[in-house]
Design a protein around this nucleic acid. Structure first.
Lengths: 313, 313
DNA sequence: TTATTGGTATATGTTTTAGTTATAGGTTAT
DNA sequence: ATAACCTATAACTAAAACATATACCAATAA
């Protein structure tokens, strides 16, 4: 009569499991006991306990060693898979500790997404192939709110001036310059440079209102002598921006990395009118209350490295 | 730093494993300790030992109970499969004691169940009358999870694309074609063949979402020019499918072996609109850590033989 | 505010168990 | 016969598992 499951659960020890595996491999109690680092009497006793547990012999004793009975063979199979699973668990835990598995949700402002975030992601997917990354590009105010709500794990951006920043940590990474762009052959791109005031005659595309970038632009307008564009469209989508620019005479303010990229491929052209206002540095924003998961730690490490590399260019 | 395997092997006790499983189920040390028949202080100590062993917290203590950390969740998964394996061992031992060869739990996708699995079972019950077989028919994603949890011994299906496949072995057996069926005399079955787009007017019956078959169907819709059925019902039960089809004007996507079977007996009729997308081959999936029992080996042998025979038809 | 409830952690002492050394005993091969 | 292999038992020790009693903490109900 095979005993109930609880007998196994209560009396079975890992030592037993180990012994069975060693026994199957070595074929003798002596060798098996040596293999798992106990003395031979202890091994004998452990085997007896097992047999007592099952209620039937697991090995037949020969003068030269032991041979498993069918019951012993079944139990040995269990021992092998159990140890194999344990090995797999350990390697899973190790992978988790190295930040090799897990999901990290990154929020980034456009300048970062077009800048060092791309090489950072490339590097991460090579070094941590099992890591799942998601990236949301938006303005800082949206991203910080999402971070605060637990929808993101880390943000590359700025902390909005009106934000309760006590729960956030900030580490500056990079500065962002703005530039003015329009479609190729746009009148404002002709030389000699257009009068600044005339630029107000074109509709402008700007980022939505509470974003830090927007404040700088308002200041620039002021410096230009109270320029007020006739019309403004607000969007933080680069796709919308580029396609609108292509079809119209609008001008747009974009991060310089983004503007240069589209200028290089000929989709847009720079407007020769420098935006002077200086934007505060953007950087890495984390929730200070929350401890980093290993996966997050890996991501942060690579982001910092790539940001430094980009800065030294 | 995750400790070496020997630490786990030496210090892990079945009590720990049991506790983890109980903890995952109950969510508090009190309830878990009661469940496994020890006092709460003993449970606290056992959990501390586990955390000391791994070197990192496995559960975060809340005032109202415990919540697993990612590490705790990983360890809990191990605990569950380990206990499930132990249960399987006990039932194997019991089967052997009754003179049976053993018990094999098979999981199969519908195409296999309607195909070569039937002759395989017939053959097995003739050659091994004392073999206990259980067959679960479901979608691959469900079956593979069950296999991984130790609830099944072997699966005939596909490894889902997003699955960590390193602990599984796969041996391709057969390919699966899909066909579209409806009730006899369904308007879509009339000749000349209906326009594909018109098929979207009928409600469709499909398998639930993450299954591999489903992905092919989405692709087919796309190829048909963005066809989107007005309504979709998700089920993986063939019984539901057939009876729904009989009572309504719905159409369903089923494996061709299944469709032909029901067409032959006059219960359903094929809809003349080929599903083009090719499904990856399905095959035999095993847990690679696990050694086959003699019973499993017999089953595998017959399955492979019947699959070959079916392929050569 | 103050109990009360529902939970976790610690201290202490006892029992159980795991493991040791020392020794006995049995087969086979030389 | 006698080494050279094995396994089994006994007696003892160190370690661990576990229970009881108690402290403590946070949320909730009165």
């Amino acid at each position: 009569m095979v005993p109930p499951l609880s007998i196994f659960r209560n009396r079975l020890r890992m030592r037993h499991v180990q012994l069975l595996q060693a026994l199957a491999e070595k074929g003798s109690l002596r060798a098996a006991s040596e293999m798992i680092g106990i003395t031979q009497p202890a091994a004998t006793k452990a085997l007896q306990e097992l047999e007592d547990m099952v209620g039937t012999p697991l090995f037949v004793r020969h003068p030269r060693g032991l041979e498993p009975t069918p019951y012993g063979a079944a139990f040995t199979r269990y021992a092998k898979t159990s140890l194999e699973d344990l090995r797999a668990l350990r390697s899973d835990l190790a992978a988790m500790e190295n930040g090799n598995v897990g999901r990290v949700r990154i929020g980034a402002i456009m300048a970062a997404a077009a800048g060092f975030l791309t090489p950072a992601i490339v590097s991460l997917s090579a070094s941590h192939p099992r890591l799942q990354l998601s990236v949301q590009v938006d303005t800082s105010d949206i991203l910080v709110r999402a971070l605060n709500d637990g929808l993101l794990d880390l943000v590359i951006g700025r902390i909005p001036t009106d934000w309760e920043s006590e729960h956030l940590s900030f580490q500056p990474l990079h500065n962002e310059h703005l530039m003015l762009v329009a479609r190729p052959n746009h009148p404002a791109c002709a030389s000699p440079p257009a009068e600044r005031r005339d630029l107000a005659d074109f509709p402008w595309i700007l980022q939505a209102s509470p974003s830090p970038m927007r404040q700088v632009i308002e200041k620039t307008f002021h410096e230009w002598g109270g320029v007020k564009p006739v019309a403004m469209i607000e969007t933080s989508s680069i796709l919308t921006t580029v396609s609108l620019l292509g079809e119209t005479d609008m001008v747009a303010v974009v991060p310089d990395v983004v503007g240069r990229y589209f200028a290089d491929i000929g989709a847009l052209a720079p407007v020769p009118a420098p935006i002077s206002g200086s934007l505060p540095n953007y950087g890495l924003i984390l929730r200070s209350s929350r401890e980093s998961t290993p996966a997050m730690a890996s991501v942060i490490e690579v982001i910092l490295r790539e940001a430094r590399a980009a800065a030294s260019d």
